[in-house]
Design a binder for these strands. Structure first.
Lengths: 355, 355
DNA sequence: TTGTAGGCGTTATCAC
DNA sequence: GTGATAACGCCTACAA
């Protein structure tokens, strides 16, 4: 590509060596020491402008790209951050990943991704694999992990952020919301609207502990009002089917629900579609409420009342807390009582037609 | 965590060094040379079982995690693969990323992600950033790149896979489908159903060249049948709004479309929702067709006829071709005429109610 | 089958 | 402000 490159860099690739121009090649061409090149690339202010220009020319002439692997080894802290999410492609976590990745990319960090599929064991494997890359920080989802994972994280000595959940007085950095509060929020909304036989439908995915927290909040509100909590766990594995199954069970028995809170919008959508076939009038006969505000939720007929989690904000906050912990940016945000920064985000109840 | 660890590994972290146990610590504890440990970790069959067991014990006792950064530097080919996609969180690319990431993770590779937002410049930046990690391979989206990107890729000397597109006689490895054929597929379907005034609505995102290929296929079919091609480019930036705008323009003028192909399901969904408010009977008065088969497309009323791209298959195929090129797995798949393997995947037309 | 020597490309340290 | 030197932790090459 560049003719000048061929003069100073041996063409072809040997068994060893990347074949690319190194910092030494740049230093030689610029007539300076390689450490000066390194300094110029990091803090150009520490190098005289005369040398700086010669170095800049050499970099361009050789098409030099710094080897970050070597840099990571030398400095013992590479610019890599590992992130474990339950899944990459779901409507929930994708915006978090997007925001997290973009924010860290902007600061010169690379994000490594792994999916746990709600399995603590897979999460632990992913964390172990990440540790091999000497990451600058790690991100996991939720606050429930295996003993092994907790040991690995504690021993790692690097900033760890837990996303998509929030519990007070927890030592790790968190970026999320309190799921129990969200359950309370949903149940209050329905109770205030006059519904009395309110059921909660769980996720068919076993490892989704956050949904259980929401259920607890829901149960607390019902107890508060002297109402019976009523939880249903569908058997069908596919979410749409599970939603249909739940609706059938909860509306066909002797006791009939007049409102149902679902663990997520997929379940709620399954129920909503089934309601049309079953001739159930939503919300008059039975109100339906989801969680997640998936992209389709506003498009359904009737549109789905649901709760919108701060997916993008979680990703951004997690990235910002990491950059702060690494000294890349100045800390920011409201203080909490114990001197930390507030990491509690809020969920928004999106009132539509179904409840 | 492990008591034995504290005996041989100095506690605390110095300026230099990760603070973790190294291969030398393991070797010392096991009473062997460090190279033997390295060999055992890679090909345990090349080490006698006696030493192997001692090494395994030492690894466990020290909680040793190999430093992949150092390994990557020494061997000049780290187990990292870079992937550039237009965006991470969209319904289209997320399943590709998921499948790609999971497949490569299973083989001990880590995927680095970057989003280009359909900008060639951002794509080039991402490729340049990836190159610093000495990746084993790179994946990009589509076959249209900046000169700079092409130069970087060509000079990299590593396997490069282009996803989400396919053109015959192209030298790079591809994993995708032919967008032009998809446009033909859609237009044929509508022509065969008797529609005659068929319009095509473009994406408001400027860099989405694949949609233009589909439009060309559509135009070819119409020309074939002596019909006028009719392309509309919405001004509204948000896809739902753009879809509504397109429907209004194409059905309110003197010439009225009897069928519309949209560049993606978001646009089509916007039009579908608008059709209800406008009192347009879909598909009798105007048929609507999308592309992408997003999760909501089957839930709309009327449900959206669309084309489902092989999103997961693209990710898997890309991963497999990379693993093949790196000698990690055996090549597989049908041969093409020129001795290569067939990388052309198919799209499925999903016939629903809207067309 | 096992070990020794040296290098991978960069940065921390210390001296000028 | 600039540079020489020695790590960083592992792997390739070669020798025993």
């Amino acid at each position: 590509m560049t003719d000048t490159a061929d003069d100073s860099v041996p063409a072809g690739r040997k068994r060893r060596g990347s074949g690319r121009a190194t910092i030494h090649d740049v230093a030689r061409l610029a007539g300076v020491g390689s450490i000066t090149v390194s300094r110029y690339l990091k803090h150009s202010s520490q190098v005289s402008s005369a040398l700086g220009e010669r170095i800049a020319h050499a970099v361009k002439a050789l098409n030099y790209v710094p080897n970050l692997v070597a840099g990571g080894l030398a400095s013992a802290r590479g610019r890599i951050v590992g992130m474990v999410v339950p899944n990459i492609s779901g409507p929930i976590f994708a915006p978090t990943i997007q925001a997290f990745n973009d924010t860290l990319n902007r600061h010169g960090f690379q994000v490594l991704l792994a999916s746990s599929y709600f399995s603590k064991e897979q999460e632990e494997n992913a964390v172990r694999a990440f540790l091999g890359w000497s990451p600058a920080a790690l991100v996991v989802t939720g606050r429930f992990h295996s003993k092994g994972t907790e040991a690995l994280l504690a021993a790692s000595g690097i900033p760890v952020v837990e996303t998509w959940d929030y519990a007070p007085r927890r030592k790790t950095i968190q970026a999320g919301y309190a799921n129990r509060e969200v359950g309370i929020q949903a149940a209050r909304y329905l109770v205030d609207k006059g519904y009395r036989r309110i059921a909660f439908v769980q996720n068919s995915v076993a490892g989704d502990f956050s949904a259980l927290d929401r259920r607890d909040g829901y149960a607390a509100v019902l107890a508060e009002h002297g109402l019976d909590a009523w939880t249903y766990a569908p058997a069908a594995p596919a979410p749409f089917d599970a939603g249909r199954e739940a609706l059938e069970t909860l509306t066909r028995g002797r006791r009939k629900a007049d409102a149902i809170i679902f663990a997520n919008d997929n379940l709620a959508a399954g129920a909503l579609l089934a309601s049309q076939r079953m001739g159930i009038d939503v919300p008059r006969q039975c109100a339906l409420m989801g969680f997640g505000d998936y992209p389709f939720s506003g498009l359904l007929l009737p549109s789905l009342t649901t709760i919108r989690p701060p997916a993008r904000a979680i990703g951004e906050l997690a990235a910002r807390r990491i950059l702060e912990a690494l000294g890349e940016i100045e800390p920011e945000g409201a203080f909490t009582g114990d001197g930390g920064r507030l990491n509690l985000l809020g969920c928004e109840l999106v009132e539509r037609e179904s409840a």
